[in-house]
């Protein structure tokens, strides 16, 4: 029986593709954003960004409007992230530690859009690309072309029946793929069991240590810092203070997003020895820019071109 489900899905997909009103790119974008929250799916996806590649298993169900998700990286030390709406429980069995956090804007495939499609359309031209069969599913490509050089182009492959993004690519100015998420195995639909989104590590450890600090810190606070000249289309999402390894004091973090790409600005007191020069790095979509500012150090990190990170980093000032 199970093996007929993909065939059925393909059959349904063929039907829905011809449905009227489906030529509106924004409607497709809206659907894709919604599907990552409302659809039930399980599978394995590969994430490549610059030099790094990782493989993750994901199960996602929506029960009574609540999202339940379990993500397990399949490379390296084992751990899992169990999510209920925005609450994240990260189980590290080796460390016997559960790390609590609240999801802010971070991109978690296939839920990679954080803003409303209308906000995204302000910075990107949204178009429909070709229809294609991907992973055995009929899919529609959605193209996001940046309206300026401050962000990267995006290609989203949306499964036609559910709208779910099954593959996404980020392109640089030379149209080279610099980041990609792709399912390599995907099951869609109601046969994804609610029990599959529960922690599998929880039972393996008798006594868990709870690290609630990340969650406590995921609250908006006044950091006293501001970005006076944010790049067009980037809105401040929140500002917080985060504890980071090797620091005596929490680091101020201001998060910006254009609905798709996000960046973090970190401000912290200079350590010893003091840094005197700027430095930057780009790897895949991840750009890193650091700049000394008197007694403080400003670091910008995000999925944006270097010019964007620099514009942000150079306009950090004390809030008047």
């Amino acid at each position: 029986m199970i093996r007929w489900i993909p065939a059925l899905a393909v059959g349904l997909a063929c039907g829905s593709q011809a449905a009227p009103g489906n030529n509106d790119p924004l409607a497709w974008l809206q659907r894709a954003a919604q599907a990552s929250r409302t659809a039930s799916y399980s599978g394995i996806f590969v994430h490549s960004n610059g030099d790094r590649t990782s493989t993750l298993r994901i199960t996602h169900v929506n029960v009574g409007g609540e999202e339940h998700e379990r993500v397990e990286p399949l490379d390296g030390p084992s751990y899992e992230i169990v999510r209920r709406n925005d609450e994240m429980f990260c189980y590290f069995p080796d460390a016997k530690t559960i790390r609590l956090d609240r999801r802010i804007t971070a991109r978690f495939f296939p839920s990679i859009m954080t803003g409303e499609p209308a906000a995204i359309a302000a910075s990107y031209e949204v178009k429909l690309g070709k229809s294609e069969r991907v992973l055995g599913f009929d899919c529609q490509w959605i193209r996001l072309e940046p309206k300026d050089g401050l962000r990267y182009a995006q290609r989203l492959c949306s499964e036609t029946t559910s709208g779910l993004i099954v593959r996404s690519k980020t392109l640089n100015e030379q149209k080279q793929v610099i980041e990609q998420y792709t399912f390599t195995e995907l099951k869609l639909g109601p046969h994804v069991a609610r029990s599959d989104v529960k922690s599998i590590f929880e039972a393996r450890v008798k006594k868990w240590i709870t690290d609630a600090k990340p969650r406590d810190e995921a609250k908006s606070v006044e950091t006293g810092w501001a970005v006076t000249n944010p790049p067009a289309g980037f809105q401040k999402v929140t500002e917080l203070r985060r504890t980071m390894p090797g620091r005596d004091q929490p680091v101020s973090q201001i998060i910006f997003s254009d609905g798709f790409a996000s960046l973090s600005v970190f401000v912290e007191p200079q350590g010893a020895p003091r840094r005197t020069d700027e430095a930057s790095n780009e790897d895949g979509t991840t750009t890193f820019y650091v700049r000394p500012m008197g007694e403080h150090l400003v670091t910008v990190l995000g999925e944006v071109p270097l010019a964007t990170a620099q514009q942000v980093g150079r306009s950090v000032a004390r809030r008047p």
Binding site: P77, I81, F92, A95, K96, T97, D101, G302
Partner: peptide
């Protein structure tokens, strides 16, 4: 540059290496 710390905070994906030695 100790990029990894900032990356972990930005992407909200904690580095398992930070927890492993515990």
């Amino acid at each position: 540059l100790d990029v990894q710390d900032y990356l972990a905070v930005h992407r909200q994906i904690p580095s398992p290496e930070l927890y492993r030695p515990v």
